[in-house]
Each structure stands twice: as C-alpha cells, then as structure tokens.
Design a protein around this nucleic acid. Structure first.
Length: 758
DNA sequence: AGCACGCCGACT
DNA sequence: GTCGGCGTGCTC
C-alpha cells in the first residue's frame, strides 16, 4: 500500500511512502512518522495508494500515529486548495491546520489531574465520628488510635469535612490549600474513605480572564434594520446552500447580535458556526458574548494561546463537542465536521492576509470552505473591501445593509484640521494642532476619554544631518532608522530587521555635529500629550508597548476602567473595542499611508479613518473626531469625514479601472531575492521573460524593477507584477518558469492577491 | 527548512 | 596535521 504524504518542508511536494503489511491502512488526514533524508519528521496523509512511484526508491513509514484519523479529510482538501491557489508548498500549508504539538510523536497529550472525592464509606464514618464523639477531640489532644478501623484522627476528620463540602471533589494540587496533608489523604484513600480518579483537564483559555462586554444586557431586542437583515440571512442559512452575504453595517449597527442569532439558528439544524475576527485582542469579547448564548460549546483558536490550550481546544472541536469556533486567520482551518455558517467579521481587515508563505487570505479561504460545506458565509464590515463590495453590487454576493446605529446614536462629528495652515501659524514643529490640544484638555477636565491615533511607531522617524543632508540608514535594509526613546535612552532602530544602534553624536558620513531628528511617531505624541495636559493619565498602545505578554490586556482594561484619560496608539486602538467613555478621537496625521505608492493606499486610509471615527461616541454622549492632514481635499479624507462609503467606492473604482488594478484584474506580486542587486534584477528579468513567452498576450508582466524595499535584511530584491484575469494561468506560468531552476524558486516570493505591493 | 557533503583558514 | 567556516543540493 502506498500513500502520499505532506511533509513540513516548504519546497517539497507530496512524497510517496509505503505502508508495511502489519500496519492498518492510514486514513486521509492521519499523521505518520516518516524518514526524510537523514531526518525523521511527522507528515500528514493526503492521498491513498494513488500515484505511481515517483522519484527515488520508496521508503516505508516509521509509524502511524492516528489509526482513526486526525485532520478531517475536507480540511486536508481545503489546505491543498490553499497551497495550490497561493502557489505555496502543500506541507507548509498543512502545517497550519495541524493541532499544535502534533509535530511531536506522541499520539495524544492530554493533561490530567487527580481529583479526590469522599466515598459513601467515608461519609458514613464522618457521620459516626461526629455523633460518637461530639467535641471530645480538642485541638491539642493526640490523635486517637484507629482501633476499629473506622475511627478518625482529628486531621482525618477535618480532611473528610473539607471533602464533603466540595461537591465536585478536590484536585490533589489544592489539598495543601485546604489544610489537608498528603499523608492524611493517602491514609484515607487506603481506608476506602476517599476515592481518587483521573480527570482530563482542558486548559481553558477563557479562564485567563476576558474583558467583559461592557454593555451587555442579555437578549437585546432588534432594531428594524437588524430584524430585516436577520430575516434575510436566516432564509439563506436555512436553504443549506452555499451563499456569500456582505453585511455592510456602520460601526455600532449591531452586527454581532446578528452573528449570534444566526449561529443559534445553525446550531438548531445540527451544524456549527465558524466566526473569524481579525485580531487576537478581539477574540475575548466575541467569545464572551457567544459563551453567554452557547455556554461551554464555544472554542477559540488563535496563535496567542499556549500550545496546550490550543491543543485542547482543537481536540474539543474535532471531537464534536463544539458548536461555535471563534478565532483569527488560521481558525479558518478549524476541524469542524459540518459548518453551516462562516462569519468573517471586519472582512476588509488586512490581518486576514498572512504575510509569509503560505500567503493566504483567510477571508477568501473562508468563502471556499463555505462553498464546499454548503454554508452561508457572512462578510461583515462598515467599510467593505473594494472586491467584496463589487461582488455585492454585481449580485454575486447577497447585500445586506445596516445603516442605523443601535439606539440611533449619532455618528461622531468630524473636523478636519489643515496642518499647512497650522504650520504657518504655529511653526513646523507642531505635532498637535490647537483644536486637538484644546479638545484633549477639555476631555481630561470633563473626566471623559480621548483616543489619539498615529499610525507610526517610535519617537522620531529619521535622524538627519544638516551638514551633508544625509540620513541615518539601516546597514541591512534600504530604510532610515527610527529613533525610539528620549534622552540617554535614545536608540536608532530598523523596523524591518530589528538592527539597533545608539543615536550617534556626530554624522557617521561627514562627521558633522549637526544631527537633527525629523518626523514623529507615537512616542513623541505621548510625550506631547503629557506636556500639554500635565494632570492627564496617558497610555500608549503600539507594538512596542504591548511586546510583554499581558501588557495589551492590561492597557485595554485600564482604559476601559477609566484608569487612563488618553490612549495614544497606532491602528491597534482603532480595532473593534467598544469604549463607552470615549468622546474624542484625534488622528494626528491622516496622511501616513497616503504618501506611499501602493494601489490600496486610499482604500486603507478611508477604512482607517472611518473606523476610528466610529470609535467616538459609543456611549450616550455624542462623539467628536478631529483629523489632522496636509491634504484636506483628498477624497479618502473628505469622504471618510462624511462617512460616505458609496461615494468613496465609486471614486476609487475609477482609479482602479484606469490603472488596471483589482477588482478589475487579478495581480500576483513576485519578489526575487539575491546577494547582489545585479543578480536580483537579472534573475527577475529572466523570470519575466519566461513568463511572457509562456503566456503570449494573456497577461501583463510589469518589471523587473527594484523592489520598493530594494534591500532587506542584507539581501537585494527585485520585483515583478503580473496582471491578468486568469489567476490559474499566472500561477502555472510562474511554476513552469522556475521548474528547472530550484535555486531561483527558493529565492522567489510569490504573492497571489497581495494586499500591498510594497 | 534542516542536514548532509564539500572544499579552504587558524589551531592543538 | 585536524576543527570548522557556511556555499550548494537533496529530501519519497
């Protein structure tokens, strides 16, 4: 018997192994331990007895870990589809769907604990002891000898009392905490008064303490909008046919309530729901809501869980004890038997795209999963991606609109501050404009809260020499170093390769003494807010601030509890969280991201500004947003202020059509790495030529050009951009182009449907 | 990705 | 004379 196995090696396709006669035939999805070169690895069975022996001589598998399967076959197939679509290796893709720890060779690794419970004999003895010798055993009296075998010492009686008052028994690990010595417990066990049994414990990630939903008053009644949406979506879910619905609802319109009710409906038909959220930080809130409705039959899956927690959750899902899975990107591969509903919340969010191989977009994989399962796929967003909205108006997706906020709360009022005028009036060093300063101070005084957003980390964005006009650059990457910290603690850091150095006192190029810092990031904004509002309690939320485990949760709950007045941060503060005391959102520079030459720059800016403005005024007080910009007339900014999605879509669509970008064409971004610039460009040129020859006229190949980051981590990079309508053709052309150049294949990064070409 | 084999510098 | 640098090449 021959099997085809996916092994966790990026460049390898399926490999064929033999199954010895004394081993049962492995099912698809089972893990097998196989020899690979001089190593031994764990792979997944993908096909049975299929292919003719390919390549060198076939080796037998070492061990079959799961005679009854592990990964469900349809999830294996989904991973295969993903690998193919995104031009990635099968093995590295299947590695995502594996339960953690599965690389190890143990078939199962459940944590268990010993539980002690009082037996019937123990209860009888305790009663007899109480009635037989009331109060006769003083604290100092020596323990009575157990002459008849049922008499109890003081310690034993205390232990039995403690156990009898614990209905579920007491875990062995907690005995000491209840004043029960281990030798006492052991004696009681020998007497038969106490029973010990092993209990499997699922390490429960919920127990880690989730942020409670702040305004949770049980079953809320639905708005008219919500009822209409729910009625239509329920009809689709009940049809048991595949359908995608785009739920376009302004922030605060109550999309989550609809997910909850749809999940309940789907559960009543015996199927499960899969709910994807863009960020780990959003899972606890979503999970808490679902737990209220579904109790323990809710699992979460994301990379922030410990291996043990993930493993337990995975096993519970696969075992069929779960109705709802909530998770981030990789949860799209959760081993649910029969999903009837797949929700992708904030579907436009870039976090759904994995920025390393396999470069899949979980939103799109979710749609394929829904298609194969005959499920309803609900994409929710206040600012849908251009692609999804296009499908919705073309009728390919069902379009559901929620344009009223619950309780009819008004959207924030938005003010745009033209920073050119501010600079003219206040000087070019202005970080916070007068209107924003005043608005923050006012919030602090009124004990309300403010969010201040700047999508750029660090203190200063560059170190600049006034003498030679040079800037401090990373030695490994073609970017300038960003200053972190102030005073003595200043360091210049590369945001791409993590290179760091102290900020020099003289220019390393010309030895000139006139080094200046230019530009600013979140650290500088934090300092400015502290300077302007001395009494204010200010926190900062960005990747640097939450590097420590638990720091994110602590910051968010401090802000939620009102222990902070102002929270400064990157886009991390713009996502999801429902802060009810926030009445001001300030955007320090709406232009970060607009200046870059990326085809999605306007879309991202519009989404970010719209989302962040929606953060203000979720409580009963009206919110205000102040947006600082150098381009007050830019359509992304103008239309985000008016929260006019439809107008933005039309405007942006013109640009995409004119420049031939998605959703009008599909694109594949190709980066070729090499030790020298010439080699990178040369290889990219050869690749481009081969693709052009292989597909005459069917697609456009742009490039080669130096990649936007021409040098990264010490390597040079050249870029190609493929545009066409047929993704399959593009993938195949690339595949054949590198087929006889394995070295080149290894240095080539292929990104199908990139979110950014930078 | 690992982990081999493989061909040239500074050490016991 | 060896130990070891990491440059190519293979893994059913």
């Amino acid at each position: 018997l021959l099997i085809r196995v996916a092994v966790p090696v990026p460049q390898l396709d399926l490999l064929t192994y033999g199954v010895p006669d004394d081993v049962p035939p492995p099912p698809v999805g089972a893990r097998v331990v196989v020899p690979l070169g001089s190593r031994v690895v764990t792979g997944i069975v993908v096909e049975i007895a299929a292919a003719e022996p390919g390549g060198p001589r076939i080796k037998p598998i070492r061990q079959l870990l799961d005679p009854h399967g592990c990964v469900p076959p349809d999830v294996v197939a989904l991973a295969q589809w993903t690998a193919d679509y995104y031009a990635a290796g099968v093995g590295e893709t299947i590695a995502i769907v594996l339960p953690p720890n599965a690389r190890g060779t143990r078939a199962d690794a459940h944590k268990t604990r010993r539980i002690l419970t009082i037996t019937a004999a123990g209860a009888t003895a305790l009663t007899a002891d109480r009635t037989g010798a009331p109060g006769s055993a003083g604290p100092d009296e020596p323990a009575r000898a157990a002459s008849d075998g049922s008499a109890l010492t003081v310690k034993q009686r205390e232990a039995l009392e403690a156990l009898s008052s614990a209905p579920g028994g007491v875990p062995a690990s907690e005995l000491a905490g209840r004043g029960i010595a281990p030798e006492v417990a052991a004696r009681l066990v020998r007497k038969g008064f106490v029973a010990v049994h092993q209990e499997r414990v699922d390490r429960d990630p919920f127990a880690a303490g989730s942020l409670a939903p702040s305004e949770q008053d049980g079953r809320r009644s639905l708005t008219a909008d919500q009822s209409r949406a729910l009625a239509r979506l329920s009809g689709l879910a009940e049809s048991r046919r595949f359908q995608v619905a785009l739920m376009h609802g302004v922030t605060g319109s109550g999309k989550t309530e609809i997910y909850l009710r749809l999940a309940a409906l789907v559960r009543s038909t015996g199927r499960q729901a899969l709910v994807l959220v863009p960020e780990i930080a959003l899972t606890p809130v979503m999970a808490a809501l679902f737990r209220q409705a579904f109790g323990g039959r809710v699992a979460i899956q994301h990379s922030g869980l410990s291996d043990g927690e993930r493993h337990d959750q995975w096993q519970r899902i696969r075992g069929g004890g779960i109705d709802v899975v909530i998770g981030t990107r990789s949860a799209v591969f959760a081993p649910l038997a029969n999903p009837g509903l797949v929700v992708v919340d904030e579907e436009h969010d870039g976090s759904y795209k994995q920025e390393e191989s396999p470069r899949y977009n979980a939103r799109d994989v979710a749609i394929v999963r829904g298609q194969r399962a005959g499920a309803l796929v609900v994409l929710g967003s206040a600012t849908p991606s251009m692609e999804s909205y296009q499908h919705a108006i073309s009728g390919k997706y069902e379009r559901i609109v929620l344009d009223r906020r619950v309780l009819d709360r008004p959207l924030a009022s938005v003010t745009v501050v033209n920073m050119r005028e501010e600079f003219a009036a206040e000087g070019p060093d202005q970080v916070l404009s007068r209107p924003l300063q005043d608005a923050i101070a006012e919030r602090v005084q009124r004990r309300e809260q403010a969010l201040v957003l700047l999508n750029r980390r660090g203190f200063a964005t560059a170190v600049f020499c006034r003498q030679c006009a040079g800037t401090l650059e990373c030695p490994n990457c073609s970017v300038s170093l960003v200053v972190h910290g102030e005073g003595r603690a200043r360091r210049a850091c590369c945001h791409y390769c993590n290179y760091q150095m102290p900020v020099p006192r003289v220019c390393p190029l010309c030895a000139g003494p006139y080094l200046e810092q230019a530009g600013f990031g979140t650290e500088r904004v934090e300092a400015e807010v502290r300077r302007l509002c001395p009494g204010a309690r200010v926190g900062r939320l960005d990747r640097d601030a939450v590097r420590r485990r638990g720091a994110l949760r602590a910051l968010l709950s401090d802000f939620q509890d009102g222990a902070l007045d102002v929270l400064v941060g990157t886009q991390m503060i713009a996502k999801g969280h429902d802060f009810h005391r926030v009445t001001l959102v300030g955007v320090v520079s709406a232009d970060v991201g607009l200046g870059v030459a990326d085809f999605r720059a306007s879309e991202r800016t519009f989404q970010l500004l719209t989302q962040v403005a929606g953060r203000a005024g979720r409580g009963d007080r009206r919110g205000e947003a102040i947006i600082q910009t150098l381009y007050p007339g830019h359509y992304s900014i103008q239309l985000a202020c008016r929260q006019d999605y439809a107008a933005f879509f039309e405007r942006e669509l013109q640009f995409r059509r004119a420049m031939a970008y998605p959703p009008f064409v599909s694109i594949v971004n190709v980066i070729v790495r090499a030790p020298t610039f010439a080699a990178a460009v040369g290889d990219a040129a050869e690749l481009a030529e081969r693709v052009r020859i292989g597909t005459p006229g069917a697609l456009h190949v742009l490039g080669p050009a130096p990649a936007p980051l021409a040098r990264l981590k010490g390597e040079y990079r050249a870029q190609l951009l493929l545009k066409g309508r047929n993704r399959k053709l593009m993938r195949e052309a690339l595949r054949t182009a590198v087929a006889d150049r394995p070295d080149l294949a290894r240095r080539t990064v292929i990104d199908v449907d990139p979110l950014t070409v930078l």
